[in-house]
Amino acid sequence: MPVEIPKDSWPGSVNTVTLGATGDQGGSRTSTVTIGGEQSLPFMHFENPTPHRPVIAMEVAAARPADWSAVLLEAWGSTLDDPAVWARACEDAGADLIVLQFGLKGSDDGPVSAEFAVEVVKEVMDSTGLPLVVLGPGQAEIDNSILVPIADATKGERIVLGLCEEGNYRTIVAAAMANDHLVLGKTPMDVNLAKQLNILMTDMGLPLDRIVMDPTTGALGYGIEYGYSVMERLRLAALQGDAMTQLPMLVTPGVETWKTKESKVGAGIPDEWGEWAERGVNWETLTAVALIEAGADVVVLRHPQSLVRVRAAIAELTASETA
């Protein structure tokens, strides 16, 4: 029985965004990462090939993280003490990108400062050739105080700076525009809020191909269904041609899942939860894969084992074989 396979042909597509710049391109990265460009829903190869596979970013904390799960501390060991070493380890493990996360603390437990921040970024850039996403601690004034000098000090590197949020985007966008960087916009699990922030940022003159969005996803068991649907809706709108939703999506299953009790806590939990470390990795990888199916272009992970598994899944999903 001949069956006509329904193929969607969409008027729109996701923007293609390149992160990082090599020596020739005015930066110092040994490789760049290109994401986006989808013309179909995720992995519908019978319609269109996946132009750029989803990539995996590993999160590196600028100062040894105080609140990470023991499972993660054990997995990374002393690497965690030095962001440069850590970033190098991520690259060796097969990461595509490094997300350098600043907290409120700088060197010797003092408050984070511009000098410290620029210093760490430089060290990390020296130790790894991967493109970088650099995120402030999430407090407007502090974010601006470190991101602007970082942007200035790394002009031309096409770093992704973040987080831009509705109440605090002007300074970061301006710094990115002045120094050939990109920005990451983050909005709380809502299609409209995501679009609105994108409109505000592009209204400042920032081209769309220099923005990546994080629509906020929640973790498995902690609201992933909302994030999942918001992502599906954003991607559908993008394909339908709504320019303000055509941004590649970066999501953070690592941050989201490793703060849940299931991943963070090893003692005094029910037997039905099973073995701790494996559970933590499952929590992270299941979240990541669900979000990849919903359209994620970048997943930011924490556990090295998760990197291996999600990488394999992505490879399988993007293999050009058709059904």
């Binding site: 498995l220 099973g274 494996e278 299941l286």
Partner: peptide, 13 residues
Amino acid sequence: PELIYPLLVLREN
């Protein structure tokens, strides 16, 4: 359990 639990939660979500 460490696999079944997250799978069942995903299904629920």
